[in-house]
Structures are given as structure tokens and as C-alpha cells.
């Protein structure tokens, strides 16, 4: 799936560039895109280092386990494959909370920590585990209370009511989070077992 998307983006882009006479631009973009990818990673270094240090303190103090224990009723349904009180669950909850509050630069380090912990209990390290898929579904569909960036853009553009978009954003993200979680559970518990049996026949 990812192979196909990547191929379509690259080949489609180069082909379109050839057709529209922008091939020179495409050549330049190939290299500037590569640089940009590295730059994003470099920007992450400081952030990751700071947050992972702080997180280690929280972990040693027992806070991560405590949070995991509080959210047990929810995580039992969402992550049946992860043992209770596993540090991954604490990191997942902190990542989702940061996302909900619009704290983007805190969310990424929590999320990467969660992935690292989930990878430790992944039976097949080359492939995403069910828990990882559920976590990323939660992460990308996440409820947003404060769309801070776009409110800033609206203020800058001179809106008479910059926060009027908050209510529809909360409703839409809340709904899509619930829908995606339900689809994930439906796939894991009903559809996939049925599909596998069908394939065996």
C-alpha cells in the first residue's frame, strides 16, 4: 500500500512535470525536499532530548504507571494486547492528552516514546502491531479542543470572530475519533477473523 502511494507520488510528479514543462523545477525540488526532510529531523533533536529527559523522571517517579492504572477501563478495550500498567500505556495517554490540548511539540516525544515501548512487545518487529495501529488511529483522528495555529491565522487576517471555528472543529474531530475507534475494533474483532477464515477456504 505504502509502496504504491510512494510510487504514484514520485512517478506521477515527474511525469506531470515533464508534461507541464516544469522538469527543471522537479529536479530542484528533489534535492530541496531531501534537505527539508533532514531539517525537520534536526529540529526534533532538541525537543526530543528535553522531553525524553523529563519523561524519564516521570517514569522513575512512578507517574507513568499511575496514569496507566487510572485509564485501565479504557485501555483494556482499546489495547487488549498490551499488559496492564505497561509503560507504553502511560506514554500513549500523555500523547493523546497533549494532542487534545493542542500541545503539538509535547505530543511527538510522548508518541515516539510510546512507539518505542510498543515495539518492545511487538511479536513481529518489522510489522506494525495491532496496538500500534490503534494508537496511530487515535493520534491522527484526535479530538482537538484548541486549533491554535488556525486561530492565529484568522486573527492575523483580521477576522471579526476568530474563534467561531472552534465549535465545529471540536464536533468534527470528536466524531471522527469515535468512528475510527469503532472501525478499528470492528476490524480487529469481527471482520479480520472472518476474512482470514475466508482466505483459508
Amino acid at each position: 500500500m505504502l509502496d504504491l502511494i510512494w510510487l504514484v507520488l514520485l512517478l506521477g510528479g515527474i511525469l506531470a512535470g515533464a508534461l507541464t514543462g516544469k522538469i527543471e523545477l522537479v529536479t530542484g525540488t528533489l534535492f530541496s525536499g531531501a534537505n527539508e526532510g533532514v531539517k525537520v529531523c534536526l529540529d526534533l533533536i532538541g525537543l526530543m532530548t528535553l522531553w525524553l529527559g523529563m519523561l524519564e523522571i516521570a517514569k522513575q517517579a512512578g507517574l507513568i504507571t499511575l496514569i496507566a492504572r487510572w485509564m485501565r477501563p479504557l485501555t483494556r478495550v482499546l489495547f487488549p494486547g498490551v499488559p496492564p500498567e505497561h509503560p507504553a500505556l502511560g506514554a500513549i495517554i500523555m500523547n493523546i492528552s497533549a494532542n487534545i490540548l493542542g500541545l503539538g511539540n509535547a505530543a511527538t516525544p510522548f508518541g515516539l516514546k510510546a512507539m518505542e515501548e510498543l515495539q518492545k512487545i511487538n511479536p513481529d518487529p518489522g510489522k506494525a502491531s495491532d496496538a500500534m495501529c490503534t494508537f496511530l488511529a487515535l493520534n491522527t483522528s484526535c479530538l482537538t479542543l484548541i486549533p491554535a495555529t488556525i486561530i492565529g491565522v484568522r486573527v492575523a487576517a483580521g477576522s471579526s470572530n476568530p474563534t467561531e471555528v472552534v465549535a465545529p472543529t471540536i464536533i468534527a474531530t470528536g466524531f471522527s475519533m469515535v468512528i475510527v475507534v469503532l472501525i478499528d475494533i470492528f476490524w480487529r474483532t469481527l471482520l479480520r477473523p472472518w476474512y482470514r477464515r475466508f482466505k483459508k477456504c
Binding site: G13, G17, E36
Partner: peptide, 16 residues
């Protein structure tokens, strides 16, 4: 990230 950024940027800049 380099793999993703290159593909996405080319797709956009080329007019695709």
C-alpha cells in the same frame, strides 16, 4: 522523512 518529503514536494511542485 526524506523519502516522504521528496515524493510529496515533487508531486505538488510539478502540477500533478
Amino acid at each position: 522523512l526524506v523519502a516522504m518529503f521528496v515524493a510529496i514536494k515533487v508531486f505538488r511542485v510539478s502540477g500533478a
